[in-house]
Design a protein around this nucleic acid. Structure first.
Lengths: 214, 214
DNA sequence: CTGCTTGTTATACGGTTGTGTAATTCCGGC
DNA sequence: GCCGGAATTACACAACCGTATAACAAGCAG
């Protein structure tokens, strides 16, 4: 009776992308428990069996999705440096501010990230993805700090990078979970003044909030 | 054939406590998905049906478990203030240091907390528990900051409390997820110096690491 | 020592999960 | 144009999920 559903053949790259995005979408809106193979397939517009054709197991898809998430977040943070000014303070200020602003900070990002935390602690492959992206971000931060016009011993640089990264992480957390608890722009002001205080540099005055293109 | 399992009657308080602790234990070690009614009952040494006798639904048990977790964390942080010195700087230093040290920071705490994040964002009751405990912690921090021997406008106090809380949260995060990435005592040093820098106060010199009782 | 309350166990049920496997149909190469 | 391979669908399966309900027994009141 029932006709077999018609379909189109797609490239492997495209299908994997669709499935990963569908998985992330579901984790963001409904938690890890909502990201079942059937729900993922449904959102991606395919049937559940296809998942097993591109990912040997559901865990593989989970790993790929997490990898994609972290990659996206670091990309978003670093994107502002592409056309950033050459003044070291302004560069740092821009990078720091972007890390606590959309799209890095939004209502779903923390929930998304939190959904993977447990797997990160258990799964070796996911732990490596985490370490790589986390340290890459912190190293980028340390690099920007080292470029500041001041003298600081190397050992101090590491601790300053850890501290500044902690401020960013904490504000990212609070800003995402409790967005209505802060006034617009308040988090950016706080991150600039506190990072500036930690480093002994005035960042707020060098920061141009946004280059709102016409 | 099979004998009915023998059992002991317990008080309601005791059974609820056992079930809550079993649920937290499972979430910590295996994520939310591992905390099934059968697994919880098994760990608590009872049969699954008993859960529905003390909690109308599994969601009720989840709420109770989250409430218990947050309560425990704030209690652990505030405990160090019981016999703390009267010097405002020393009090703040002790409180801040305790917030990034065991038992608040340990390998399972973040995974445990992360497991509930999604429910917090969706469930109103859990959101209220979160806001209450989060703001209680931040207010306590602000209260300690306000007691410092210096003059600061009220509006500034709020932002300083947010910033210091962010540092603590960020270090709590990193220290729990990546414990081997930091040397012993390093996180405490960092939190004291950075919080001190944000507030313009020297905290590190007033901090007595631990009162190792004989 | 007997009876009653109720804490606790036992069992059942419909729905869902991840996975394995066979049947189809799309689509490029000839 | 059709043919073969592989992308995709369809179906089956055992295990597990949360929930509902009935049977049992533990321990206190008398």
């Amino acid at each position: 009776m029932s006709e077999r559903r018609p379909y189109r053949r797609e490239t492997e790259e495209r299908r994997r992308e669709d499935l990963i995005l569908a998985a992330l979408d579901l984790v963001a809106s409904g938690g890890v428990q909502a990201a079942t193979v059937r729900a993922i397939a449904d959102r991606a517009g395919v049937t559940p069996g296809l998942i097993r054709h591109y990912f040997q197991t559901k865990e593989d898809l989970t790993r790929a999705a997490y990898h994609r998430l972290m990659q996206q977040m670091t990309t978003d943070s670093a994107a502002v440096l592409d056309d950033a000014p050459t003044d070291p303070r302004a560069r740092l200020a821009r990078f720091v501010a972007a890390s606590v602003s959309p799209p890095v900070v939004d209502i779903t990002s923390v929930g998304l990230w939190a959904g993977f935390v447990h797997d990160v602690q258990r799964d070796v492959a996911m732990r490596e993805v985490h370490n790589a992206t986390y340290l890459a971000f912190r190293d980028k931060l340390q690099e920007l700090i080292a470029a500041l016009p001041r003298t600081a011993p190397v050992a101090q640089l590491r601790r300053e990078a850890i501290a500044c990264n902690a401020v960013i992480d904490g504000l990212w957390l609070e800003g995402s979970i409790l967005p209505e608890g802060f006034e617009p722009g308040e988090i950016v002001e706080i991150v600039l003044s506190s990072v500036g205080a930690i480093l002994g540099v005035d960042l707020a005055s060098t920061y141009t909030p946004d280059r709102t293109p016409a």
